[in-house]
Design a protein around this nucleic acid. Structure first.
Lengths: 342, 342
DNA sequence: TTGTAGGCGTTATCAC
DNA sequence: GTGATAACGCCTACAA
């Protein structure tokens, strides 16, 4: 009565289904991949057999034979970051619309790890890959080209890059924020940033601050810099460092909202008032920026749109393989209570 | 001079390497998998060939032949959640120590999607799978058993479950919190929770509140319940709903910290003081709980430890395949300013 | 519409 | 130590 007699332990294969249905493996394969090429009656038999056996196709075998995985890989610096998570979410949703599955890996901001993961993704047969930020060993891009795996880079915009990008202009975005800060009278600036080494988002944003200062005639030395890893506590620790310096800055511009929120919390813990004693700004405009008290002045980035565009671009690349043009995602300033005139 | 003449477009294979090195494919394979079985001189030749060709092994072919992927899959309800992200991070780290790679998928809290992703993971050859929460169609567990894929369930603890679990007692944890709340004089309770349908974490926590009320002789009707999806804004909206009811609750116990922070922000926006006008509690004790103002009373969950234990358990299961005992992760109450006596 | 058969890139079991 | 060679499970011309 049970079906446990014919399949003993071994997981069922295409051949098993074919046997049970009384057809060839080719027919079963067709039922799975292009059902309309097989007549109703036959299909029914096969479907029954599939159900009875609890058959699940072996992806690896399929990929090997078909030379296509319908899979796209993405490597993000960290998963513990709402920003990447949200952008990736819409990236995934858009991929899903085309029946493509997403493979995610996180590099922990380490280039060596990233390189390893790129190789992993390629060897797993990813049809395409999404990377964050442009800055990496040219050999990697060569490798990818050699392996014929299309790449899209997100979170930065650079129409002149070797690979298509979809992102925003980190330099201009941060410069616009700095312009605003300076226009409000701030002269003693500071920033809490991720290490700009090998991180073009961070280095571009830093450049944006400097450019704004230069325009305003403020010497570069007026900017104190503290590097910090990603995290609320890290932001707080960085702020403490900043306050140790001979001159207290009137504003601290953080590389992202999470660092900023951490800085605000620490400032308040130390008895300072934000923004009366010190102003704080962020970057990204994630949810936390709104509910922070005081609410955070920051740069709004439309992450969802960016993820979606990146997905579309990658799918085009995989299907048509024709060159894609980089896409600029516009950011905007969001001024809230954490920034005040000096 | 360049090496671009011998490999035209086609990505190099084992056979190509073997050809260039003047050995058999078997030897190349051995060089890659058990280098000590091949003599120094030969190995050198092979390594050179690998480098020259930029050879990367085909994972799918390898998996097909070896019947092992060194890959473990995990399906989490959402990636936009610091909790799962953090737990997963340590899960991944621990796996990494054993040379196992992690494949993550997120189900968006949808059981149908989860089921599909489980099949995907299995067909991709995952050696084992991590799932969140116990509650799902028994057929899925049957399927997994049939396919011989070991499973570990995290975020809940249940020594009597069919599969090993590593997690905490959601019921007791929430009951302890409710006990505290009630001991501080609260009688008109409310909760913002994820839909308990098919979510055993949520339903157990709800049960915990009821149990505490019962012990204190408070009728069940004194608890107002609003269901909300995960998110800061969702928490705020839920709070508004709660305030529409005939009697304003003196405390709102949220299913997680994110909802709680959203509720606090909304309450303040509406001119209420937390905790003077209304107390708020969370669950998880993520970073945001500390920096919230007022700081959040919540239940601390050692996510990193949980992730690590889950990884160890899964690896044991994959290697030895002998039964593993469920592991209880202890939680603790963290009382901060958002909760006050009534 | 369906079946036959060769091949996808590796691993693993043999002999040598 | 090393080299043939048969799997591994599926896809896809090509033939029927």
């Amino acid at each position: 009565m049970t079906t446990d007699d014919n399949n003993m332990g071994r997981t069922p294969t295409l051949a098993d289904v074919a046997g049970l249905a009384g057809v060839s493996t080719a027919t079963v394969s067709r039922c799975l991949n292009s059902p309309d090429q097989v007549v109703e009656r036959t299909r029914k038999k096969v479907e029954d057999a599939v159900l009875e056996l609890g058959y699940a196709p072996n992806f690896n075998a399929r990929a090997l034979a078909a030379k296509r995985t319908n899979t796209i890989g993405a490597i993000i610096p960290t998963m513990e970051n709402a920003i990447f998570a949200r952008g990736l979410q819409s990236f995934q949703e858009e991929l899903g619309c085309s029946g493509v599955t997403l493979l995610v890996a996180s590099s922990s901001y380490r280039t060596d790890l990233e390189e390893e993961q790129i190789r992993t993704l390629v060897s797993r047969g990813a049809d395409g890959i999404l990377l964050i930020g442009l800055h990496r060993d040219p050999k990697i891009y060569e490798f990818l080209k050699r392996q014929n795996v299309p790449v899209v880079v997100a979170w930065v915009f650079d129409p002149n890059a070797e690979v298509p990008t979809v992102g925003f202009d980190n330099f201009s975005a941060m410069k616009a924020l700095a312009d605003r800060v300076i226009s409000m009278g701030h002269r003693r600036l500071s920033t809490i940033t991720a290490s700009p080494q090998g991180n073009d988002r961070a280095s571009e944003r830093l450049r944006g601050i400097y450019a704004s200062m230069m325009e305003a005639g403020i010497p570069k030395t007026e900017l104190s810099i503290v590097e910090a890893e990603y995290g609320i506590d890290e932001g707080g620790a960085a702020l403490e460092q900043l306050l140790c310096q001979r001159i207290r800055p009137s504003v601290v511009m953080c590389g992202n909202d999470v660092l900023a929120v951490g800085a605000i919390a620490k400032a308040q813990e130390l008895g300072l008032s934000v923004p009366n004693d010190i102003s704080v700004t962020g970057f990204d405009d994630i949810e936390i920026a709104k509910i922070s008290s005081p609410a955070l002045t920051t740069v709004h980035v439309p992450h969802r749109r960016m993820g979606k565009e990146a997905a579309k671009m990658l799918i085009n690349l995989v299907n048509a393989a024709k060159k894609q043009n980089s896409i600029l995602i516009e950011t905007s300033l969001v001024v809230r209570a954490s920034l005040s005139s000096v």
